[in-house]
Every structure is written in structure tokens, then in C-alpha cells.
């Protein structure tokens, strides 16, 4: 390689760094401007709406897709918002809880997926779902930095914060999916006639993996659970309830019992409704698949839960 080629190579590297840095900041600012105005869609809109109303709402639900689809907020007779987001876990939930004002009286329901707490591969990467607020929200930035889920490159190329979300932001910016003012965060799963055969096949499918000999709680998940406990201890005006919603056919109760013990040790208010429909009567129409309730099932569950929670609301 002669000096001429070295010069050209250095020029390419330098120009690329400058241009890519400039484009990155333009894209980032553009997406920031747009995303701040986006109030619809599961990726960004729901989070934006939550951050806007979180301290003026009496009742909040957190959790993954099962929280998102299982708690019909209209049935709880109070002003509430369902902040369940598909594909998220306790890291995401814990971070969102940390953004709440401590002195505001609120009922907080946190959905727990017991299986996730014993998943050895869980690494807390669901917190990356909040990366659009990195360096833009103090609590979220603090949690993301602590989690080590932000790559070093992200500190140079900010547009990585919008990885996987850019098209959704554009779509919801120009054509909002729904009227967010009347949206309470609950997303019912409505099973139409053509989807029924698929649902029936899913319910018949045997995907049980059996009971492990030694269930061990995932240390990362436990750490996030403990950080919620710390938050609870410092916010006396809030009532926290932890709930596991029904599963169609749970073949192993060992993990559930272990988890109940852990929650008892942590002195957290926990109710496990995994086998609720087995006990009060099950119906195929309640389900979308073995772990997700349809709108009909969600109504049944929410009504039941509402009665159970009456004393605390």
C-alpha cells in the first residue's frame, strides 16, 4: 500500500465519519421531532401517551403482552391506563415504575409471567424497548446506562435509538392508527371466524416442556423485582399488586409455587391466577392461544379481578 492509497483511505474514513455523523444527527432530530408527536402505535405512541398521563391516572397496569391483552380497563370503574407492551419483561416494567411520581396516590398492577422469572436466558434486554428515550428521560437513561444494554456505538450514532421503529413512527405520524384520546392502553384480541381453526389448533398443540428438576430464579429478573420493592418502600401513597393471569393448560406448578414463596419473602402482594379458568370453568372462546386470552376471556378475567380488587380500589 503506497502513501497515495493510505491518504485516500484516511480521506474515506474521515469523510465517512463526518457525513455519517451529520446524517445520523439529522435523522435522529427528525425522528425525535416526529416521534414526540406520535401518540399511537405500540412501539412509540403507547409509551409517549403513558409518559404524558402517568401522573394523572389512578390505576396503571404494567407487564408484557399478557398484561396488554388481559386487562380490560373499562371494567375497573376507575381512570386507568394499561401500559402492557408485547415482548417486554420485568426490566422494562421496573424502569417505567421508576418514572412515576412517588407521592401521587395510585393503584399499580404489575403482571408477572412466572415462566420468565425462571428463564435462564433472560438478560434484561427488554429494557432496550425504551431506547427511544435514551438521553431524553432522566430515569430511563439512568436505567439504560445501569443495564449495560446500550452499545458504545450508540453514543456516537444516536439513530440506533430508533432501531426497528423508524417506519412505524413515520406511519403513525402521517396516519395515526386510532384516536389516542379515547385509548386506555388495553388491546383486546378479537378472534374472527377465519382465525378460529388456527386458535383451535394452537390449543390442541402439545408444547409442554415438562417440569425442571431445579428451578432457579433468574438473578437479573430478581434484581429488577427488588428494585420495584425499593420503590414501593419509598412511595407510601401507592398500592402495588402483583398478578399472574390465567394460562390455558399449565403443566407445571412447581415454578408458580416457588415464585409465590419468593414474593412472600419479599413481602409483596401477589396473586396467582394461572389456573383460574380451570377452577371456575374454561371455554375455548376465552383464548387466542395457550397463553393469551381473547377479548371474551379478558372480559371474564377482568370482571373477576375487579371483584377481587374492590377492597383495594
Amino acid at each position: 500500500m503506497d502513501s497515495k492509497t493510505i491518504n485516500k483511505l484516511l480521506k474515506i474514513i474521515l469523510i465517512t465519519l463526518v457525513i455519517s455523523y451529520a446524517i445520523d444527527k439529522l435523522v435522529f432530530l427528525g425522528l425525535n421531532t416526529m416521534s414526540d408527536k406520535v401518540m399511537t402505535g405500540q412501539a412509540i405512541g403507547k409509551l409517549n401517551q403513558f409518559l404524558t398521563i402517568k401522573d394523572s391516572t389512578d390505576f396503571l397496569v404494567f407487564g408484557n403482552s399478557r398484561a396488554n391483552h388481559h386487562f380490560d380497563m373499562d371494567l375497573f370503574n376507575t381512570k386507568g391506563y394499561n401500559m402492557g407492551v408485547d415482548g417486554t419483561g420485568i426490566a422494562y416494567t421496573s424502569t417505567l415504575v421508576s418514572t412515576l411520581k412517588k407521592d401521587k396516590p395510585q393503584l399499580i398492577l404489575i403482571h408477572i409471567d412466572t415462566k420468565n422469572f425462571f428463564d435462564k436466558s433472560y438478560d434484561g434486554s427488554d429494557i432496550r424497548g425504551l431506547k427511544t428515550k435514551f438521553n431524553r428521560d432522566e430515569n430511563i437513561t439512568k436505567a439504560l446506562n445501569k443495564s449495560n444494554q446500550i452499545s458504545a456505538i450508540q453514543n456516537f450514532y444516536y439513530s440506533m435509538n430508533y432501531n426497528g421503529n423508524a417506519i412505524s413512527i413515520l406511519k403513525n405520524y402521517f396516519k395515526p392508527s386510532y384516536d389516542y384520546r379515547s385509548y386506555n392502553g388495553y388491546n383486546p384480541i378479537i378472534i374472527n371466524e377465519s382465525q378460529k381453526p388456527m386458535r383451535d389448533a394452537l390449543l390442541l398443540k402439545d408444547n409442554s416442556v415438562g417440569c425442571e428438576e431445579d428451578f432457579e430464579i433468574n438473578p437479573i429478573a430478581l434484581e429488577y423485582l427488588k428494585s420495584i420493592k425499593t420503590y414501593i418502600e419509598n412511595s407510601e401513597n401507592k398500592t402495588f399488586i402483583f398478578v399472574t393471569s390465567p394460562i390455558y393448560d399449565d403443566s407445571c406448578s412447581k415454578d408458580n409455587n416457588l415464585f409465590k414463596g419468593i414474593m412472600k419473602d419479599l413481602n409483596l402482594n401477589y396473586s396467582d391466577y394461572t389456573n383460574l379458568f380451570k377452577e371456575i370453568g374454561n371455554d375455548k372462546s376465552y383464548w387466542k392461544d395457550k397463553t393469551h386470552l381473547s377479548d371474551i376471556g379478558a372480559k371474564q378475567f377482568s370482571k373477576f379481578l375487579q371483584k377481587e380488587l374492590k377492597t383495594q380500589m
Binding site: K11, I12, I15, T16, I19, I23, V27, Y157, N163
Partner: peptide, 20 residues
């Protein structure tokens, strides 16, 4: 060189936005 750097830059940003 400038055009190549520009194309590489665009690809980098596309990677940032869409990497899986």
C-alpha cells in the same frame, strides 16, 4: 471518494435504523 463515503454513510445509518 466523496460519493463512496456518502454511500457508506447512508448504509451505516440504515444499519443503525434496521439492524436485527
Amino acid at each position: 471518494i466523496v460519493r463512496l463515503s456518502f454511500i457508506v454513510s447512508v448504509i451505516i445509518i440504515m444499519l443503525c435504523l434496521f439492524y436485527s
